[in-house]
Amino acid sequence: MSRQIIIEMRDVWFSYREREVLKGVNLRLYEGENLVILGGSGSGKSTILRLLLGLEKCSRGRIYIFGKDVTDLNEDGWFEVRRKIGMVFQEGALFDYMSVRENVGFRLYEEGYKEENIDRIVREKLRIVGLESVIDAMPGDLSGGMKRRVAIARALVGEPGVIFYDEPTTGLDPITARTIVRHINMLKEQYRVASIIVTHELEYAFSLADRLMMLKDGKFIFEGSVEDFKRSRDPYIVKFLGREEMV
């Protein structure tokens, strides 16, 4: 099995002011896979995604995206790289003063597409997440789950090869959360999109993951399949599993 690596982090360090958040992170994402990053609050999960989008710069280490070393790119260089990446932020991060149409079509408006083409593409992406009917609504009128789905639709514009999800199910009721999980899995199967999904919710992590990684104290302490994870003897992982079951 020689699948291609599309994203790689090598010994990446990062700190906010004096606080060391990441201390030597290694990560690989292969094409067409769902990689789930697990970790407690404040362990640096979101920071990893921010580094992979060029929203933060690492203090040490190298980052490769689609085979290209992006570690030292400037903002203009990153604009180029980000075109091929979709991002679904925590809570969606929809532009709250724009309609769903303008949100999903944002890139297309910016790139000067014709109105009818924008309409066609926006509808197509909204259909994938089952929300074509809300095209003229404002984000404020949508439920939490609908916002995430619109955010997924927005990330799909530009046909990205990889999508990042930051806590896609957090704060949603179980039924809505499972809908989101289904959409993410469907994107992998039908469109062969690779994903990195950051979460601390085990149930959804297990139904999403082809591979799991566990972040603790700025390092990955586990990498492997869901089965291996469940069987792990690592005290922290045992605790993580146990605590979740009690909730």
């Binding site: 921010r50 980000r82 990446i85 991002m87 991060a93 532009f95 709250d96 944002f106 890139r107 910016e110």
Partner: peptide, 13 residues
């Protein structure tokens, strides 16, 4: 709410 970051990710300054 990360809207500014979202804008950067979508390629707009």
């Amino acid at each position: 709410t990360y809207q500014l970051d979202a804008m950067r990710v979508l390629g707009t300054d």
